[in-house]
Design a binder for these strands. Sequence first.
DNA 1: AAAAAAATACGACTAATGCCGTATTTTTTT
DNA 2: AAAAAAATACGGCATTAGTCGTATTTTTTT
Lengths: 217, 217
Amino acid sequence: MKLKICIAEDNYFLTKAIKEKLSFFDDITVKFDAKNGAELIGKLEENHNVDVVLMDIQMPVMDGIKATELVKNKYPQIKIIMLTVVDDDEYVFNAIKAGANGYLLKEIDAEKLHKSVLEVTKGGAPMTPSIALKTLNLLRNPEFTATINTAESDIKLTKRETEILIQLSKGLNYNSISDNLNISPSTVRKHIENIYKKLQVHSKVEAVMKAKKSNLI
Amino acid sequence: MKLKICIAEDNYFLTKAIKEKLSFFDDITVKFDAKNGAELIGKLEENHNVDVVLMDIQMPVMDGIKATELVKNKYPQIKIIMLTVVDDDEYVFNAIKAGANGYLLKEIDAEKLHKSVLEVTKGGAPMTPSIALKTLNLLRNPEFTATINTAESDIKLTKRETEILIQLSKGLNYNSISDNLNISPSTVRKHIENIYKKLQVHSKVEAVMKAKKSNLI
DNA sequence: AAAAAAATACGACTAATGCCGTATTTTTTT
DNA sequence: AAAAAAATACGGCATTAGTCGTATTTTTTT
């Protein structure tokens, strides 16, 4: 029997795009769609014979987090996959707390979306690699899961700077870091100098703590 | 350039099986293997030019969790994928806490193993669906993650030492701490020296990180 | 192709840290 | 009261860290 899914997404074109992606697969059928959480709840009240909901996070009237919570409370058997353009920490964590079964970026291609839908119905938890990583990071830092930071700091570290911060967080000194990353100690020092400027700190401990608090590492 | 990986696995036949699985792919080369965590550490000390470690969890002498912790502390850039026969909650959580980047079941087929190795080097977090689910469940139940590490660490800091550690965690230097606590800088240094001995560390960052991990601050 | 950003690298200098030993005073436990 | 633990304190010395300035190469963006 075909898997019955529905879509909650405020952007009409994206809804259409998702439907097109899924149209290639004959084991899935889109039963209906809704343009926000409230509409989804209403339609599910009429007919909740649905296997999977593809849920946008950002929607007017009622967003995907709240809708997930309501749907999961009333119809726990329905699997919910969150769709989002950004893999923001706060969204990921709140969606998981609300009971989402999977979490994908909207840019996902047709085949992966199809696989994810099948996976979630088998009890799996489809996630894009970047989001899987975020869940691990959240687990590693339980102190930050308790108090979600709403203040989005616009501190941007480069890839290399992040790598070096991670090494710093292990208590490694300049020489060890330079050895690990195959660059000269001078370069390590310069990177750290730049990191300090960006974070506005003046020591390793400060840098590591601030980075952890800002979810930079 | 080929990805350099190594294998830590006590069962010779499984090591061989993994090597065979990977032999189909010419972008990966197995540099060496070890039959337990201790041997892995030893070999990495000679040559840590390795991108990914495939690590068994259950091994004699030193298990994969402990080995992961040590490797990650010394060479944070090395990616570690845990391999296990069971997706037990506690194992998964401890492996993640230790710093594992991915978590796969040993029954994985060659292609998925290959994909996972590539994914982890790109910063992703490869997981089998059942384990991805466990991470979500762990996140949804913070009370479980909070109360897991009760067994270990009979490290006891005195009241003063704890006070000083908290100051350290703010990135304060000896003079500021001495000023804050109304004791001489010499005393601060001595306290910190004692803290280091208790925690078996050699720097501020290490001390703060270890204290956080052990719920001492 | 040009411009901007990121990564690389060195030298010099001062400040801070980590580690050693030793020692006295205060507080707590037995 | 005696013993143990904790807190206080100093000096010395080698290493590491933090802060300048400057400059080239590589990668990414426009």
